[in-house]
Computed example of a mutant assay.
Amino acid sequence: MRLLLVEDDKMIGEVVLDLLRSEHYAVDWVKDGDMASTALRTQTYDLIVLDLGLPLLDGLSVLRALRARKDRTPVLIATARDSLFQRIEGLDAGADDYVLKPFELDELLARIRALLRRASGRAEPVYEHKGVCINPASREVTSNGVPVVLSAREWAVLEPLLARPGMVLSRTQLEEKLYGWKDEISSNAVEVYIHGLRKKLGAELIQNVRGVGYMVPKE
């Protein structure tokens, strides 16, 4: 999953960036509202963690512009603006959730997981399909009840495919979930991770859709 972190405080940004990357998310970090707006117009993200008190362009303005474009990307506001009016204002502007600074890191991760579940149309915290079960909270994977060890990037490929069986994701879309701006992209990376997943979880779990991409079939 690829996340956009919008945070101008260097210390908080570094802590959250390290946390999210340790959880195997691909993360881009921007430090002002203008950069956030540019990123959101040029990249696709699975979720945005958005501060409100930003230089150049306020976070609420970024959020309102996002929703005005009919962009449904989940937005978690993470801010020190703690009055009831400010919380209501943020939610009414289109935020999906609101967490106050200073926040507990575990709570931040739980809220991110909940929003990603909701965005994929799932309520249950564990994804299961054809005997393969993944738990985003613990990063545990089992196949017919047997634990399976995946690399961070194998997980990053498997999770979005298993979250939405029947949806085809292109190679480019999967690369976007694997890498942030500063990461070097190997030309055959997706194919390598798909090959590894098939060896570990079965050759039929992930199918090629010729000329389009990959999917986990519904049936």
Score class of each variant (00 low, 15 high):
69 R>S: 15
69 R>Q: 15
72 R>S: 12
73 T>E: 09
76 L>R: 04
77 I>M: 10
77 I>C: 04
77 I>H: 00
77 I>Q: 00
78 A>P: 03
79 T>K: 04
80 A>I: 08
84 L>C: 06
84 L>G: 01
85 F>D: 13
85 F>K: 11
85 F>A: 15
85 F>L: 14
86 Q>E: 15
86 Q>R: 06
87 R>Y: 04
87 R>W: 00
88 I>T: 13
90 G>Q: 02
90 G>I: 04
90 G>Y: 03
91 L>P: 01
91 L>T: 03
91 L>S: 03
91 L>V: 04
92 D>K: 08
95 A>L: 05
98 Y>R: 08
99 V>H: 01
100 L>Q: 13
102 P>R: 12
104 E>Y: 08
105 L>H: 09
106 D>N: 14
107 E>D: 15
108 L>N: 11
113 R>H: 11
115 L>V: 03
116 L>W: 01
120 S>I: 04
122 R>G: 11
122 R>Y: 09
122 R>P: 01
124 E>Q: 13
126 V>T: 10
127 Y>V: 03
129 H>I: 06
130 K>C: 03
131 G>W: 10
132 V>W: 00
133 C>R: 09
134 I>E: 01
134 I>Y: 01
138 S>I: 13
139 R>Q: 15
140 E>I: 05
142 T>I: 07
142 T>K: 05
144 N>R: 13
